[in-house]
Amino acid sequence: MSRRRNPLGVVILAVIGLFFFTIPLIGLLARAPWSDLPDLLSSEIVLDALRLSLISSLGATALSALLGIPLGLMLARAEFPGRSVLRGLVLLPLVLPPVVAGTALLFALGRRGVIGEPINEVTGLVLPFSIWGVIIAAALVAMPFLVISVESAVRNLDPRFEGAAATLGAGKWRTLRAVTLPMIGPSLAAGLLLTWARAFGEFGATITFAGNLQGRTQTLPLAVFVALEQDRDTAIAISLVMVAISLSVLILLRDRWWRAR
């Protein structure tokens, strides 16, 4: 076999690393109120939060796809001054504490915000305290994952395929749809998956920008946070739901997309 073995040091550190990732999960499972789980999970608070979490995380992923894929393509291809500054801007939400991102959103898109005030005056729309606010906050912190995935995939693409498509008479849109996007398919899928996962778990930006109200803006992470203060069993139950949903999505979809390669 040509398979190389890892040095012992790497294996030891990897095992410690694995342990590091499982510690929180062990804590959660050890405290889980297994027998009360069905009751806890069928409460109105949990169902409302689950519904809002699914809607907002999918909404944020859709918004990210709409804006993030073009952004990734442009960062990979277009030559213009200040591109690295632009890239830095796009990646900023990855390092910024989400609470800061949420506060910044409030300054910009709030009812009295720089952009939010004119929007409010013209349309009467108030973004904070609404599902739109939740989606925007989640998209802001999650979209960078999609942008970097698309950018690096497009950079690594062999330009000859697109060249061939162009020679065969395909227009720019058609080349994009029929050649570029299918070829970066796996990276695109991985990027979308990460984006969804980040949006699904989003907490800080959401609670600062969109507030917290059951049935309107209270997603699962917010429900966990509030429940932790009072009713820890519910908090653990909701966390388990999040773990179950995210793990199954990440495991199932990942295997499916990667095996094809």
Partner: peptide
């Protein structure tokens, strides 16, 4: 008829200060 239940008094205050 509230629009948000803030996690602590400081975050509620911030939203009032911002006029949100």
């Amino acid at each position: 008829a509230i629009d948000t239940s803030e996690p602590d008094v400081r975050s509620l205050l911030t939203k009032l200060e911002e006029g949100e």
